[in-house]
């Protein structure tokens, strides 16, 4: 009998702590499925961030290293340099990667560090209670932008992925979403491609995954999906931003 679905080996059986309607769980799962499909579970070292996915080290059934806020690419660099033959990925949110960790992600990408980054962008700080993120949309209300993000005061939503395409060391940068099954499939395909790029020694790859935060957006999960589609995708359009084919 052919198994058509199952629980990934690359996830532990620990129950996720994520809120209802949050897509971290889906993203964890597809990352784990890709690790299984590439048969690299025993060769993988993951780096967890600070943010809602801080406990990712409890969920991935691989060697994990919990980094300080924003420094996952630096920690991953240290690991990868010691074990160049292993597979190393970081899993980071938008506060982590797009704010406090901008220097680390930019320079890891610029060095063409052979790591893969999953960048989960939900346009808000979740763990600390709904503060404005650098990726928050113009006019978006958060606890630290209670009247809506005023770009004259707080700057504009930062498009990290577009920025990173300018770096020669980054070979694959793409933006996906996981708000419906079709997009989840596409996201998984992108993650697999990113991981293969590392395994083939081609350079740095990053997959930005748009994600929901119904709790801190103040919405029902179903509304948050609509908000993502109608608002986030306008500022953060989906699709490949840089591909190795384009580089070669």
């Amino acid at each position: 009998m052919k198994e058509v679905a199952g629980y990934p080996d690359a996830l532990t059986d620990k129950q996720f702590h994520y809120c209802p309607g949050c897509t971290h769980g889906i993203i964890h799962r597809i990352v784990a499925e890709v690790i299984d499909e590439l048969d690299i579970r025993e060769e993988t070292i993951g780096v967890a961030p600070v943010g809602c996915s801080v406990l990712a080290y409890e969920y991935f059934n691989v060697d994990m290293h919990e980094a300080s806020h924003g420094r996952a690419p630096a920690v991953a660099t240290g690991i990868k340099r010691v074990h160049p033959d292993k597979f190393v990925f970081t899993y980071q949110g938008d506060g982590d990667l797009a704010s406090i960790g901008t220097a680390e992600i930019v320079h890891a990408a610029n060095r063409g560090e052979l790591i893969s980054t999953i960048f989960v962008n939900n346009a808000i700080y979740g763990m600390t209670g709904g503060q404005m993120a650098p990726t928050s949309l113009e006019g978006q209300k958060t606890t630290t932008s209670p009247f809506g993000r005023d770009v004259r005061e707080a700057g504009h939503p930062i498009r990290m992925s577009e920025m990173l395409t300018q770096l020669d060391g980054a070979v694959y940068i793409t933006r996906v979403s996981v708000h419906d099954p079709q997009h989840i499939k596409q996201a998984k395909k992108a993650i697999k491609k990113a991981f293969k790029i590392q395994l083939e020694g081609k350079g740095f790859a990053l997959v930005e995954v748009l994600s929901t935060c119904p709790t801190n957006w103040g919405m029902k999960p179903s509304d948050s999906i609509e908000w993502l589609k109608n608002n986030m995708m306008e500022t953060y359009p989906l699709g490949d931003l840089k591909t190795p084919e384009g580089v070669e």
């Binding site: 780096v47 980094a67 300080s68 630096a74 340099r81």
Partner: peptide
């Protein structure tokens, strides 16, 4: 943080 990673 790189030495943190490498030490780990």
């Amino acid at each position: 943080n790189m030495i943190y990673g490498a030490a780990g």
